[in-house]
């Protein structure tokens, strides 16, 4: 049975735009780090007249379900549900998916497979590919385990991690392969594609927003630190308000 999803709808202030924006969050530790930051982004976008929906994927955050059954297909279907919910709730007639990190890969998948008809997609700090994202998480996991082991005395070591957990989050068998199949920046996505990053440069043909803030996504010291890049949030909200109806 489908589990209920948790979402937060930000109704637009002032003149209402035709485009609704679905925020597609990242995975695990990145999801936790960016929760408040994505809320601030949603508020900034809604103040510019966009209806915005944030939500938690199945088996994560406040949504129903167990993370041990997490799969890419399920989460892509969740994006489809979120987009439909935003249309129904607000009457917006076009959709922009804004994906952060892993969420950018999922958002592309949702559009490329035809699960979501979107007029635009913004890819914020999108990993070069799903495979690179998985490898980065695995390296972070090793670094975190090493750090925790070094910090603790011999008698207070944590039990070894189970095979199906990573960085303190569920990592069921098959998920790595699922994510590893997701490509990086896809060619021929319908609609407008906006690349959002401080450190990565897209091909010339792709519109981009250059950010002042680093995400520190590969820094194990920041794995539990909040991601609230105020200046970048303001820039992204302004640029999207300039370009989307």
């Amino acid at each position: 049975m489908a589990q209920p999803l948790f979402g937060m709808l930000h109704r637009p202030a002032g003149a209402v735009r035709r485009t609704g924006i679905v925020l597609c969050t990242s995975w695990g530790t990145e999801y936790l780090r960016s929760y408040r930051g994505l809320r601030q982004l949603a508020q900034a976008l809604s103040h510019s007249g966009f209806p915005v929906l944030r939500f938690d994927y199945s088996g994560t955050g406040d949504s129903g379900g167990d993370g041990r059954s997490a799969r890419v297909d399920t989460w892509t279907a969740d994006i489809t549900l979120a987009a439909a919910e935003l249309r129904t709730s607000t009457g917006c007639d076009s959709i922009c998916l804004l994906g952060l990190r892993f969420g950018a890969l999922l958002a592309q998948e949702a559009i490329a497979t035809g699960a979501v008809a979107a007029s635009a997609i913004a890819l914020w700090d999108s990993p070069p590919s799903g495979e690179v994202f998985v490898r980065n998480l695995q390296q972070m996991d090793e670094a975190l385990n090493e750090k925790v082991s070094q910090q603790r005395r011999r008698r207070s070591q944590l039990p070894p991690p189970a095979r199906d957990e990573l960085l303190g989050h569920e990592w069921p068998e098959g998920l790595a392969a699922d994510i590893g199949r997701l490509p990086g920046l896809r060619k021929e996505l319908p609609g407008r594609v906006i690349f959002v990053s401080r450190d990565r440069t897209p091909p010339d043909s792709v519109e981009s927003i250059r950010l002042p803030d680093a995400g520190h996504w590969s820094d194990v010291e920041r794995i539990h630190s909040p991601w609230i890049p105020g200046p970048s949030i303001r820039i992204v909200a302004e640029r999207l308000a300039d370009g989307l109806p």
Binding site: D213, R222, H224, S225, P226, W227, I228, P229, G230, P231
Partner: peptide, 8 residues
């Protein structure tokens, strides 16, 4: 915003 870039 100062929380951004702060280590926990």
């Amino acid at each position: 915003d100062a929380l951004h870039d702060a280590l926990l």
